[in-house]
């Protein structure tokens, strides 16, 4: 240990430099916290959040063609697509359930969808009081997530 190091140790300089650092961090501009419900965090464009079943904005009809690809792509098997054949032998979507409680938001269903009907939106507030409440049916999915806006 050299003399410099010895003096450093005697005068506690190694501790003082740490103290200096923490002291300097007290300036208000260094604060990093977001006050969540009051300030909403910006969510990335590609964020994979609550699912939504898109409608055609002009006609209001569902875009889903009941091809069942999302259901097959899902690793967790949590999508159930119900359909019936119309007179002209085309598939028509009847029911669509999506179990959000089991979803890991991997986005494979979204990738699989050939018509951009199923989409993982930017909404992240999907908590619910019951397990049953986490199973979303077609109406809920088409309405899209309706998060509670907390305020005081």
């Amino acid at each position: 240990m050299g003399l410099k190091e010895l003096l450093r140790r005697i005068f506690l300089l190694d501790l003082v430099q740490g103290l200096r650092l923490t002291f300097s961090y007290q300036r208000p501009s260094a604060t990093y916290t977001e006050q969540y419900p009051r300030e909403r965090p910006p969510v990335a464009e590609r964020y994979r959040g609550a699912p939504r079943l898109n409608n055609n904005p002009e006609t209001g009809e569902t875009l889903c063609i009941a091809c069942n690809l999302c259901s097959l792509a899902c690793p967790e098997n949590l999508i159930v697509v119900g359909w019936e054949r119309t007179e002209d032998r085309r598939k028509k979507l009847t029911t669509f359930t999506y179990d959000v409680s089991r979803c890991m938001f991997c986005g494979l269903c979204e990738d699989a969808c050939p018509v951009d009907a199923l989409e993982l939106t930017q909404d992240f507030e999907i908590a619910n009081y019951t397990r049953e409440g986490m199973i979303w049916d077609r109406d809920l999915l088409e309405a899209g997530p309706q998060p509670v806006r907390y305020s005081r």
Partner: peptide
């Protein structure tokens, strides 16, 4: 509060 400011946080709010 002081700890929070030192740690770039806000503390109880």
């Amino acid at each position: 509060k002081v700890l929070a400011f030192m740690q770039a946080r806000l503390g109880p709010m």
